[in-house]
């Protein structure tokens, strides 16, 4: 019956088409790449948040995930490598009415732009940072990153990575983020909900989205995109409220997902206005 219903009606547009620059679709992300899923969850959250479109902006840095700013049909900016957060900070200070989303990758946000991230979190700059973590530098050919698991193979660690990776939610929390969550691309509903909450909340919000990179990370670690998703299905445990210091990504122990932190703290702009703009201090 539904077949006929479908045939009987003109095919409607995809429900997210109005948030996409349709002339740029298909995007450049590889088949099976999870960035598209994180991106579609983000667009879905923008939609369900009910925020006025003209006040929502997206900023991204360099890398595969950084291409997102070029596909969203909102005011957006694709910055230089690592500089998405300072650019977003400027936007927010220049026009505090804006709801600023930073959509970028682990390399851009935590390696090249690591300092910017911790200081924006420390100041509690009001923005929503979505970090797609694919565990390596995908765009440049799959080099080891600050997030690559110990012993994982990459182009620059053919014998296995000797280093210990960052635990991203822990860094964000320790630096002062007031909303911290981690999901995988399988948890589409939870990512959407976390992003929506983050958009509607004041303060520095950080959401990590684990995402397969079958072409560079997967290939060298004998993991197809389907395998990665199966791994997510089998090895993840949802523990809302878990302490960020205890959630290193270790498939042996299980990968902890959830909303870990949700605090109310005055934002940078609120403190600045109170301390530096108030006439009473003069």
């Amino acid at each position: 019956m539904a077949d006929k219903l479908r045939a009987a009606k003109k095919q409607p547009d995809h429900p997210l088409d109005d948030l996409l620059r349709r002339d740029r679709i298909p995007h450049i992300w590889c088949p099976g790449c999870g960035i598209g899923t994180a991106f579609s969850s983000c667009l879905n959250a923008i939609k369900s948040s009910g925020l006025e479109r003209k006040n929502v902006v997206m900023v991204s840095g360099i890398g595969c995930s950084g291409r997102a700013a070029g596909y969203v049909n909102l005011d957006s900016f694709h910055t230089t490598h690592g500089r998405a957060i300072p650019f977003a900070t400027g936007l927010k200070l220049g026009n505090p009415d804006l709801n600023v989303i930073v959509f970028s990758g682990d390399g851009d946000l935590f390696a090249i732009g690591g300092n910017h991230l911790i200081h924006a979190a420390r100041r509690n700059m009001d923005m929503t940072v979505i970090c797609v973590n694919n565990l390596n530098y995908g765009m440049t050919g799959g080099q080891v990153a600050a997030t690559t698991p110990n012993m994982a193979k990459t182009t620059t660690t053919p014998r296995g990575n000797p280093e210990t990776p960052f635990n991203l939610p822990h860094i964000a929390y320790a630096a002062g983020a007031t909303f911290v969550a981690r999901w995988t691309i399988l948890n589409t509903r939870e990512i959407t909900k976390s992003i929506e909450e983050a958009l509607l909340k004041k303060g520095f919000s950080f959401i990590e989205v684990l995402s397969p990179c079958p072409i560079n990370y997967g290939r060298r670690n004998k993991e197809s995109s389907q395998d990665t998703l199966k791994l997510y299905q089998e090895k993840t445990i949802i523990k809302n409220g878990a302490h960020p210091s205890e959630i290193d990504i270790d498939p042996e122990k299980g990968i902890i997902l959830g909303k870990f932190v949700d605090l109310q703290q005055p934002t940078y702009i609120e403190k600045y206005d109170k301390i530096c703009r108030s006439l009473m201090n003069h």
Binding site: D17, L20, I25, C33, G34, I35, T37, T188
Partner: peptide
Amino acid sequence: YCEIICPEF
């Protein structure tokens, strides 16, 4: 579910 998990819209 298919709608959101599909990376390609």
